[in-house]
C-alpha cells in the first residue's frame, strides 16, 4: 500500500483473454464501494494472442498518477507462457503475484524472492463453470474472483454485481467462475531445498 491508501495492480495477459475487461470490472466494483479508481490497458497492434497489459489503481483519494504502473503492489499473470521478466518487473519484496496455473509455479522459480505468491487454476475453474473448453478456456472472470480475494479492494458481492451489469451472456457460468476463483486461491508451497 502506498501514500493515500493507493493500491496499484498490473495485469498481464494476451489479446482475447479479456485482460482490459478484467481491469475495468475490478475498478468498477471498487468504485461501487466508494473508492477512487482508474483502469486502462496498453497494447501494440491489437490482435488476438499478443501480450496485453492492463493497470488498475484503487485509492481513498482522487489524486493518482496517470502513467503505467512500474512498481505494482500486485501483479496478475493470465498464464505462465508470458515473458516472466516482464511480468515480474518492478515487483518488490512484500509485493504479491497472482498466477494462473494448475498446481506448482511451472518452472517460474518464485521461491525465496520475498514475494507473496498466490496460485489459482483459473483454466480448470473456467472449464468446470462451462466457459470455453479445455485448451481454450475463458478465464478472466475466474481470475477476477481470485484477484478480489487476494487484493481486498472490494467484496465478491460488488464484483458479481458488476458482472451482472456488464456481461451480455453466459451470466451464470461467469458468476460461478468468479466464485470459483475467489474460493480457489492457494499459496505457493516452497520446499526447503528451493528456499
Amino acid at each position: 500500500m502506498k501514500a493515500n491508501g493507493l493500491k496499484e495492480i498490473r495485469i498481464h495477459g494476451r489479446g482475447g483473454h479479456g485482460v482490459v475487461f478484467a481491469a475495468t470490472a475490478l475498478a468498477e466494483a471498487a468504485y461501487r464501494e466508494g473508492k477512487f479508481v482508474q483502469a486502462f490497458g496498453i497494447y501494440g497492434a491489437e490482435r488476438r494472442g499478443a501480450p496485453v497489459t492492463a493497470f488498475v489503481r484503487v485509492g481513498d483519494r482522487p489524486e493518482m498518477p496517470r502513467c503505467q504502473i512500474q512498481q505494482p503492489d500486485i501483479v496478475v499473470s493470465f498464464d505462465t507462457n508470458l515473458p516472466k521478466e516482464q511480468v515480474l518487473k518492478g515487483l518488490k519484496p512484500g509485493g504479491m503475484l497472482l498466477l494462473n496455473c494448475p498446481d506448482s509455479s511451472e518452472g517460474w522459480d518464485l521461491c525465496g524472492r520475498g514475494y507473496l505468491v498466490r496460485l489459482v487454476d483459473a483454466s480448470q475453474i473456467a472449464v468446470k463453470s462451462g466457459l470455453g473448453a479445455v485448451g481454450i478456456p475463458v478465464i478472466n472472470t475466474a481470475i477476477l474472483g481470485a484477484l478480489v480475494q487476494v487484493s481486498g479492494v472490494c467484496s465478491l458481492e460488488s464484483l458479481t454485481s458488476v458482472l451482472q451489469d456488464k456481461i451480455p451472456r453466459h451470466m451464470n457460468e461467469n458468476l460461478a467462475a468468479a466464485r470459483g476463483g475467489y474460493a480457489g486461491v492457494r499459496e505457493l508451497e516452497c520446499y526447503a531445498t528451493a528456499l
Binding site: 475495468t24 468498477e28 477512487f36 482508474q38 486502462f40 490497458g41 496498453i42 496517470r66
Partner: peptide, 12 residues
C-alpha cells in the same frame, strides 16, 4: 487529449 492515457482510461 492523450492517446491511451486518456482515450482508453476508465475513470468515474
Amino acid at each position: 487529449y492523450d492517446g491511451f492515457y486518456l482515450s482508453h482510461t476508465y475513470e468515474a
